[in-house]
Design a protein around this nucleic acid. Structure first.
Length: 508
RNA sequence: CGGGGCGUGGCGCAGCUCGGUAGCGCACCUGCUUUGGGAGCAGGGGGUCGCCGGUUCAAAUCCGGCCGCCCCGACCA
């Protein structure tokens, strides 16, 4: 027994000492982040862990959003909030607890949400008269208040938004993409006419599209949801659909025309100019912390996270490099000066002056975290009054170049803009390369497993056809395209002539 | 809920078959040498072995029960 153990140890130590240190180090590095081409799901989890975006919580399905992940969310929140204010909305806050009876008032709504409700039955040590639902969304409680606040056409439109957490009991959670509790924004509006409400639903869908493209550098497809994918209680749902690195679709934002469904359930009515009692027409729309997952999966690479400059918590990191003490003082001083000037120019810059870790470690540290631009300042640079710059979107040493120190700060905004633009173009190109046209279900079945991506097709099916599609391919109809070409063709499932164009894909 | 796996320092694991000093890597702390792509050496700290019970002189290891977690299949932003 002892012989076996020591023989095993001996072999292991020989193996360890016989491999050159570089090989060993590379293996260790490779282990930290799985190759996305080998296992995309594991890669996603590895990146979230290594970039310190989130950690798992003691409660199943919940997660802790760590400071770096939260500041990314905050940056997105700010860009969105500005857009909401610019389109006339005001923020408000409604309660976390909703009387159970409220949820039941709209029949489709209760049916859709019943399986994922968390219900509070006790409070203050006593059983409650009426159980309280932890909000899965706030249409009901908001309508309860709208019905009090709205009495005349002069009160309309009412344009509200709230930033909040919601709870939907999840069977299969994934960090950011599907968690039991998540953070989001829910807009709720009431209008006098159907036309106005439909306009609003579309306006906010386009706001989401604008945000995705111009802030997150993620190209999206805009469309209408099919009957079976529609929000529980809506007349029509719309979404933006983004493509992730593995060709899967991620619903990244939704906007609903609710019609008068909730107004009827809650008696949300107003008197029009002719003194006639009418129901309000409503919308609701939301995006969530799922967007963090979208950014990870749309832009991340083998090295980790890549963040578009406009939403990156740290846009520029300065890494000083020095050997001797007198170099140290000079270089740190110059590095700090660069950071301070960038900071004055409104650029989110950070100096990594830790002397407990090596420069090489810092390069990797900030690359995993996706910081768009790194500036290195070492003795060689200082001697020739230059710096070395490394844009994150060109990984490794290939992207490095030397720039004169003079005028550097003025160039940084342009550099960031061009990184932002390149990231969008890269994502756009990949989506186009992974988007195909397909004529029949059989063809889709054959091609999808080998070539994941978006499949464009004509569509004239119903819920039953959607079930067949999912059973055959695991893919679903992501949306019916809003921006579609003229013409018509044969539905890829039913063969009927149709002018509806859809995107079919595997989805998260 | 059906199928598969796992609970041992903060993390990842070995040890269990065949009971006998609780170990390895990473991380952490101290010191010296280092610093342009995840530094090296030396020393050090840290574990009720998921929980409860049983067998035994002795249990991480054997037996029984319970609990928890992860992965794969039916809903959703």
């Amino acid at each position: 027994m002892h012989g076996l153990v020591s023989a095993y140890r001996w072999r292991r130590s020989v193996l360890a000492s016989s491999s050159p240190p570089t090989t060993k180090r590379m293996e260790e590095m490779a282990e930290k982040i799985t190759n996305p081409d080998v296992d995309f799901a594991q890669w996603y989890l590895d990146v979230i862990r290594e970039a310190e975006l989130a950690d798992s919580a003691p409660v199943r399905g919940c997660m802790i959003i760590r400071p770096y992940g939260y500041s990314l969310w905050e940056a997105m929140k700010e860009a969105l909030d500005q857009r909401f204010k610019a389109t006339g909305h005001s923020n408000a806050y409604f309660p976390l607890f909703i009387p159970e009876s409220f949820i039941s008032k709209e029949s489709e709504h209760v049916e859709g949400f019943a399986p994922e409700l968390a219900v509070v039955t006790h409070g203050g040590g006593k059983k409650l008269e009426e159980p309280l639902v932890v909000r899965p969304t706030s249409e009901t409680i908001i309508n309860h208040m709208f019905s009090k606040w709205i009495s005349s056409y002069r009160d309309l439109p009412m344009l509200l938004n709230q930033w909040a957490n919601v709870v939907r009991w999840e069977l299969r959670p994934r960090p950011f993409l599907r968690t039991t509790e998540f953070l989001w924004q829910e807009g709720h509006t009431a209008h006098a006419t159907e036309e106005e409400a439909r306009e609003e639903a579309m306006r906010m869908l386009r706001v989401y599209e604008d945000f995705a493209v111009n802030e997150a550098a993620i190209p999206v497809v805009t469309g209408r949801k099919t009957e079976s994918e529609k929000f529980a209680g809506a007349v029509e749902s719309f979404s933006i659909e983004a493509m992730m690195g593995n060709g899967w679709a991620l619903q990244s934002g939704t906007s609903h025309y609710l019609g008068t469904n909730f107004a009827r359930a809650f008696e949300t009515t107003y008197l029009d100019e002719t003194n006639t009692q009418r129901y309000v027409h409503q919308t609701s729309w939301g995006v969530s912390t799922r967007l963090v997952g979208a950014v990870v999966m749309a832009h991340g690479d083998r090295q980790g996270l890549r963040l578009p400059p406009r939403i990156a918590p740290v846009q520029v990191v300065v890494v000083p490099i020095f050997r001797s003490d007198d170099q140290r003082a000079k270089i740190l001083e110059e590095s700090a000066r660069i950071v301070s000037v960038l900071d004055d120019a409104g650029i989110r810059a950070q100096l990594d002056d830790r002397d407990t870790v090596s420069p090489g470690f810092k390069f990797n540290y900030w690359e995993v975290r996706g910081v768009p631009l790194r500036i290195e300042l070492g003795p060689r640079d200082l001697k020739q009054d230059s710096v070395t710059i490394c844009p994150r979107n060109v990984p490794g040493k290939e992207g490095k170049s030397t720039r004169p120190l003079e005028g550097l700060v003025e160039q940084v905004p342009q550099l960031l803009d061009s990184i932002q633009e390149q990231m969008l173009q890269d994502a756009l190109r990949r989506r186009e390369e992974m988007t195909y046209d397909v004529q029949t279900l059989g063809e889709l079945e054959e091609r999808l497993p080998e070539s994941p991506g978006f499949y464009r097709a004509w569509w004239d099916g119903d819920g039953e056809d959607e079930r067949r599609l999912k059973e055959a391919t695991k893919a679903t109809i992501r949306c019916i395209l809003l921006d579609r070409p003229e013409g018509s063709g044969k539905c890829f499932v039913t063969g009927r002539e149709s002018s509806q164009r859809v995107i079919v894909a595997r989805a998260y």
